[in-house]
């Protein structure tokens, strides 16, 4: 099978998965007992049929369920996710604001995880079973096992509250206006438009949440790199390289690390997707206006349209990342394409 054919098949499968997710989420959210309007209509008007009818009409809840799904799909094809019940705002607008916020946070968290995690894994493997290894492994273990919400609160307590070194929750300083939207990622937009103060403020506010969120991936990356590098260092080709009389640095960087990076890169891909789960907690603690906090409030308030919107976005992200990983594998290892 050619590469393009392979990609086309994967793409078709991906679209099918997203479609199935939309049906499943729609059915599940509507099958859950409970009335989303109960938390929206105030106590006073709860039993007023006129008000209830007006609210039902507003979200199409007066239509039969299959009809609601058809309407939903039709609107979706026009890029309209509907109106959030709990926020009374168009979901497309909410998502447009939140996706870049989460993307920006994830990007910085992942950068932190890689910049710290890779050297940590290297130090560990090269000093196998000596004290630098123990220290590095301890850091990796802590990173991977400390709950994100606890670490987040701790970081805030120490660096924002006690030391006053870094700013607290939020994306920007008090009263600061976000730069005109290009990507929605504030540090990028500010940089491109030369708003240095905004860039600097946004960057500083990214430090603590990125460390909190990145710590999970950091642990995974460091441990993965350590074990695969250790395995590679024991391989025949490394012995050959050493036998050729190559400098140790060239043996490690040029031969062992290159091979050890392949499983690590896979893990980086998967960890990025899994950060979305950590983002739910991080965003709540740092009042970060991202997808995670949106998903939480939508779920708590049984906000069907919002839940559907956020599930679809997350599904698309997962499917895309998996698709990319599949394609990269297909390129790296042609055997996969035929299997």
């Amino acid at each position: 099978m050619g590469l393009w054919q392979f990609i086309a098949r994967r793409l078709a499968l991906a679209v099918l998965v997203v479609a199935l997710v939309s049906v499943a989420t729609f059915t599940l959210t509507h099958a859950v007992p409970g009335d989303p309007l109960a938390v929206v209509i105030g106590e006073r008007q709860a039993n007023n049929p006129e008000v209830r009818a007006a609210f039902e009409k507003r979200w199409g809840l007066d239509q039969p369920l299959p009809m609601q799904y058809v309407t939903y799909l039709r609107n979706l094809l026009h890029g309209d996710f509907g109106e959030s019940i709990s926020k009374r705002r168009p979901i497309s607008g909410e998502l447009a604001q939140r996706i870049p916020a989460t993307a920006e946070l994830t990007l910085y968290a992942m950068s932190f995880a890689i910049i710290v995690g890779v050297p940590l894994g290297l130090i560990s493997a090269l000093n196998h079973d000596r004290w630098p290894d123990h220290i590095a492994r301890f850091i990796a273990l802590v990173g991977a096992s400390v709950p994100v919400f606890w670490l987040g609160l701790l970081l805030l307590y120490v660096f924002f509250y006690q030391l006053k070194w870094l700013p607290g929750p939020g994306r920007l300083d008090v009263g600061m206006k976000a730069p005109p939207t290009i990507t929605g990622m504030i540090t990028f937009d500010a940089l491109v438009q030369g708003q240095w103060d905004v860039f600097w403020a946004a960057l500083r506010r990214l430090v603590l949440p990125s460390i909190a969120l990145g710590s999970i991936a950091l642990g995974i990356i460091a441990r993965m790199l350590r074990s695969s590098l250790l395995a590679a260092l024991g391989e025949d080709y490394v012995r050959t390289a050493r036998a050729k009389g190559l400098a140790e640095r060239r043996v490690v960087v040029g031969h062992a690390l290159r091979n050890a990076m392949i499983p690590t890169i896979t893990v980086v891909g998967l960890a990025t997707a899994s950060l979305l789960a950590g983002a739910v907690l991080t965003e709540t603690i740092f009042s970060w206006p991202g997808l995670g906090s949106f998903a939480v409030s939508a779920a708590l308030k049984l906000d069907y349209p919002a839940l559907l919107g956020v599930t679809l976005v997350v599904a698309v992200v997962y499917v895309t990342i998996n698709l990319l990983v599949d394609i990269v594998y297909g390129i790296l290892d042609p055997r996969i394409r035929t299997s």
Binding site: L153, Y157, F160, K164, P169, T284
Partner: peptide, 19 residues
Amino acid sequence: IWRNIADPNSQTQAVEVGE
């Protein structure tokens, strides 16, 4: 300015540090 901070403890901290 009403600034969004969800957690009551973080709200109090923001006042304590002067933000």
